[in-house]
């Protein structure tokens, strides 16, 4: 069964985190075990397997057997007594390393949702699994509930592979562009031409007048020079 959002209306945000930014793609296999009797030292029994073919895209296959009759009764009692449903996930990564995570949800919430649950697999930037958390999409909590046993047949699990978002960086480029744009609007365009290019129309007449005056009056200049001597 491929993952597809069951409660899409509620879970848009889960989907949004898609589109990985991890550098290496890999796969992971998650072995799920659950405890149907609340205890401080829970006894975990097999629940199913989740294979994430690609951590990059979050593509996954879920294989879970339907619950047996005894398990259903146990789950109903767990829900009726307002106990926690405990899940153990054994993650085997593509490099062969194994890590174990535990997670708990309120059993009554799980039962009330007809065993529609969400498995959130959080990765770090390198694609390593940080934690596996079980959650139930709901807007309210319950304090114990009796659910008909025929509703507790089979888990339908949505797997969400969640990558960290790239951290924000100070946006200097847009800001400087904005400042430049503002300056342009005000007409304060900076003139980058050289001094000569800018003021040639003033310099040339002055030079011409000087040349002309010195050409027209060479004696004066000569006498002036003599006088200086």
């Amino acid at each position: 069964m491929l993952m597809k959002g069951y409660c899409l209306c509620l879970l848009l945000q889960f989907g949004r985190i898609f589109g990985g930014n991890i550098e290496y793609d890999g796969w992971a296999n998650i072995n799920l075990q659950h405890a149907l009797i609340a205890s401080e030292n829970p006894v975990f029994t097999e629940r199913g397997n989740v294979t994430i073919q690609s951590l990059q895209t979050g593509l996954s296959t879920v294989y879970q057997k339907p619950l047996s009759q005894t398990d259903r009764v146990k789950l109903r009692d767990l829900a009726a007594n307002n106990e926690f449903y405990q899940l153990k996930s054994i993650v085997t990564a593509s490099d062969g390393s194994e890590s174990v995570f535990i997670s708990s949800v309120k059993a009554c919430m799980l039962a009330e949702s007809d065993l529609n649950d969400i498995l959130s697999v959080s990765l770090d930037y390198s694609g390593k699994v940080v934690t596996v958390t079980l959650a139930v999409a709901s807007t309210a909590t319950c304090e114990g509930a009796v659910v008909p046993i025929d509703k507790l047949k089979e888990f339908s699990t949505s797997v969400y592979v969640r990558h960290p978002e790239n951290g924000p960086v100070p946006d200097t480029i847009t800001y400087t562009q904005k400042l430049e744009k503002q300056a342009k609007e005000k007409g304060e365009v900076k003139d980058n031409r050289s001094f000569l290019a800018k003021y040639w129309m003033y310099i040339v007449p002055v030079v011409i007048i000087m040349v002309l005056s010195s050409a027209a009056n060479p004696d004066g200049a000569a006498t002036g020079n003599n006088a200086a001597r």
Binding site: L10, K106, I118, G167
Partner: peptide
């Protein structure tokens, strides 16, 4: 979502995050 009393168990929707950085 849970306006009267907050419960961590009732995850109906993950929050939407805004992020920004400054020098």
């Amino acid at each position: 979502s849970n306006s009267t009393a907050f419960s961590s168990h009732a995850v109906s929707q993950l929050p939407h995050a805004e992020a920004q950085a400054y020098i």
